[in-house]
C-alpha cells in the first residue's frame, strides 16, 4: 500500500468509515452466509422430535443458571472424546437449539449424551448437593430448585415464539403446553397421556424429583438432562470414525 493513498484516506472521516466497514465485513459474510445455503451443513434426521414444554422449561433453567459455563454439549470428533462421552455430536442434533449450548469450557464433563446415563434419583441427589454422590465435585448445589415451583402459565408463549422462529410445534402442542408440562411430571394421570400422544411414546414421563403433587424447577431440569442426546439417534447411524488425537499416537 502506498503511503500517499493512505494519506488521502486519512483526510476523510467518511471514507475511513466506509473502508473499515468494507474490510471488516468480508470474513463474516464468507463464513456465515453459506451455512444457510449449503445443504450438507446440517444432516437430515426425519425422526427428530422437538423438546416437550417441560424439557424446554428445563433448558431455560439450564441457560438461566449458566450451566454452559462449565459443561459443554459438543462431543468433538476425537477418539478419546467419543470413547468417554459417546458418538460425536452432529449439527442436526442442535437444529432446534436457540441458543446452542455447545459451551467452551469443561470444568465439569460434557453433557451432550448425559440423557439416560443416570437415574432421575441420581440427578436429583446430585443437584441437591453434588458432593453427596461425587465427593470430589466442585459443582454448586442447586437444592433450591426442588423448592421452587415451575412457572408453567406462559409456556404456550414460549412454544409460540419458538414456532415463529421455525421450530415445528403444532397448534395443539402450543395450546396444551402448560398441561403437558404438568403431565410429564405426573405419571398415571390423564395429563400424562397427552404428552406421549403429542411428543411420541419414547418421551420420558416420570415423577422426576420424586414428588408428584407439584411440578418444580427440579422436575424440569432433570427432564431436560434426561433427554440430552436422545431427540434423534442420527449420531448412532453411519457416522465417520473418530480421529486420533494428533499428538498422542500410541
Amino acid at each position: 500500500m502506498s503511503d500517499t493513498v493512505h494519506r488521502k484516506l486519512e483526510r476523510s472521516a467518511i471514507g475511513f468509515v466506509i473502508a473499515i466497514i468494507a474490510a471488516a465485513s468480508v470474513g463474516g459474510i464468507v463464513e456465515i452466509a453459506p451455512l444457510f445455503t449449503i445443504d450438507e451443513t446440517v444432516e437430515q434426521a426425519p425422526d427428530m422430535r422437538v423438546y416437550t414444554p417441560l424439557e424446554l422449561a428445563g433448558r431455560n433453567i439450564y441457560v438461566r443458571e449458566g450451566c454452559y459455563a462449565c459443561h459443554s454439549q459438543m462431543i468433538r470428533t476425537l477418539r478419546d472424546e467419543v470413547e468417554r462421552y459417546g458418538p460425536f455430536s452432529l449439527a442436526v442434533e442442535s437444529q432446534y437449539d436457540r441458543p446452542m449450548l455447545w459451551g467452551s469450557k469443561r470444568t465439569g464433563p460434557d453433557l451432550a449424551r448425559i440423557g439416560g446415563k443416570y437415574s432421575d434419583f441420581w440427578h436429583v441427589a446430585h443437584l441437591n448437593n453434588p458432593r453427596d454422590v461425587v465427593p470430589e465435585s466442585n459443582m454448586p448445589a442447586y437444592a433450591w430448585l426442588a423448592r421452587t415451583p415451575l412457572k408453567t402459565d406462559d409456556l404456550s408463549d414460549h412454544l409460540a415464539a419458538q414456532r415463529a422462529l421455525g421450530v415445528p410445534y403444532t397448534d395443539e402442542m402450543i395450546e396444551n403446553a402448560a398441561r403437558d408440562a404438568y403431565g410429564q411430571a405426573t405419571p398415571d394421570t390423564d395429563y400424562a397421556a397427552g404428552v406421549t400422544e403429542r411428543y411420541g411414546e419414547a418421551t420420558q414421563v416420570s415423577a422426576f424429583d420424586g414428588v408428584t403433587t407439584k411440578v418444580t424447577e427440579m422436575d424440569a431440569l432433570v427432564a431436560y438432562l434426561q433427554v440430552l442426546g436422545r431427540l434423534t439417534d442420527a449420531a448412532y447411524r453411519e457416522t465417520a470414525a473418530a480421529e486420533e488425537a494428533p499428538a498422542s499416537q500410541e
Partner: peptide, 17 residues
Amino acid sequence: KSYTIWPGVQDAMVQWW
C-alpha cells in the same frame, strides 16, 4: 426472556464470530 433467531450450528458460528 427471548430466543435468538440463530439456530444450532449457525448460532455457534455467529456467537464465536
